[in-house]
Simulated assay, not measured.
Amino acid sequence: MAVAIFVLDLISKTIVVSVLEGGEPVTLIADVLRLRVIRNPGAAFSVGTGMTVVFTVIAAGVVIAILRTARRLRSLPWAVTLGLLLGGAIGNLTDRLFRSPAPLQGHVVDWVEVFPATGFPVFNVADSAIVCGGILAVFLAWRGYQLDGTRATGAPEPATGGDAAADRSRDDAGEEHGERRG
């Protein structure tokens, strides 16, 4: 997952920089989606534009933490989650390390603009992967899924799709026939 996200991010940035940078934004769907290349020296939503080196160090730390955590993975959903986060972090870290204006101070290439009139931030494939991975991580943690594939006790049970009254009836019928439910 991480490799796929990284490669897709790198290829898309390479193409949009060579084709779109310096030109007018390209509208794909009026008032909904356009392509516009910007160079972001800060974090998400251009926060902290003067702290590029700090963000580079933080991104490197995140990559190392994910790689160390991945050794304990025994859960497919967590593997997908960490793959999204890792691929996105490496994608943006690559920009910070190798793009202009200087090594460790590179600006991240953002190019997808949704609902341009709203001022929603311009983003890239790596940013999308990080957001999706973050949402998935919160969901998995809320549901009690652990990195080792087990489930924490006291976590909300998945919906069975059945009717609670019917489940109680089946339980009662089983007990009437001498079956013990535990």
Rank of each mutant, 00 (worst) to 15 (best):
L136H: 01
T56C: 13
A79M: 11
K13P: 09
A155V: 07
I5L: 02
S18C: 02
A79K: 05
G174L: 15
D167S: 08
T14E: 11
V112N: 02
D171F: 06
T81D: 02
Q146G: 03
A70E: 08
P116W: 03
T118F: 09
M1V: 11
G42H: 04
A89W: 01
V32M: 10
N92A: 09
R151L: 03
V122C: 06
I15A: 14
D172T: 07
V109T: 15
E113I: 11
T153Y: 04
P158T: 04
G133D: 00
A137Q: 05
G178W: 06
T69Q: 15
V19K: 14
F55A: 12
M1T: 08
L104G: 02
L82R: 01
A4D: 05
V125F: 13
I130K: 01
G61T: 12
I66W: 14
T14K: 07
F123W: 05
A117I: 04
V112L: 15
M1K: 03
A102Y: 12
R96Q: 12
A79T: 13
R39V: 00
H177E: 15
L73I: 15
T49I: 11
T81V: 13
I29K: 11
L93P: 03
I135Q: 03
R36Q: 14
E113P: 10
H177V: 13
D127S: 10
I58N: 09
D31G: 12
I38D: 04
V122W: 02
R96A: 12
K13S: 09
G174E: 14
A165H: 06
F45Q: 10
F115N: 03
N124D: 08
R72S: 14
G154S: 12
I5G: 00
L33P: 02
A173I: 10
R71F: 10
R74I: 00
D167Q: 11
S46K: 09
E113W: 13
E157N: 05
I90A: 05
L20H: 09
F139R: 00
R72I: 04
G48Y: 10
N40A: 08
I15D: 05
D171N: 07
V131R: 04
R39G: 03
M51N: 10
L35R: 08
E176F: 06
A137P: 04
A141E: 06
T27Q: 10
L97I: 14
A102S: 15
L20N: 09
Y145S: 10
I64D: 07
S12L: 06
I90P: 00
H107C: 03
G134H: 06
I90V: 15
C132A: 15
I29C: 09
A155L: 06
A164C: 01
A137Y: 02
T52F: 06
T81Y: 01
A59P: 00
V47A: 10
A2G: 15
M1W: 06
D163E: 05
V53R: 14
V53L: 15
F123D: 01
G174R: 15
F98K: 02
L10H: 07
V37N: 00
T52E: 05
G178H: 07
T118A: 09
G162N: 11
R151V: 12
L76Q: 12
F6V: 08
G87M: 02
G182P: 02
P158L: 07
I5Q: 00
L20T: 08
A159I: 01
F55H: 13
A173R: 14
A43R: 13
T14R: 09
V114G: 06
T118N: 05
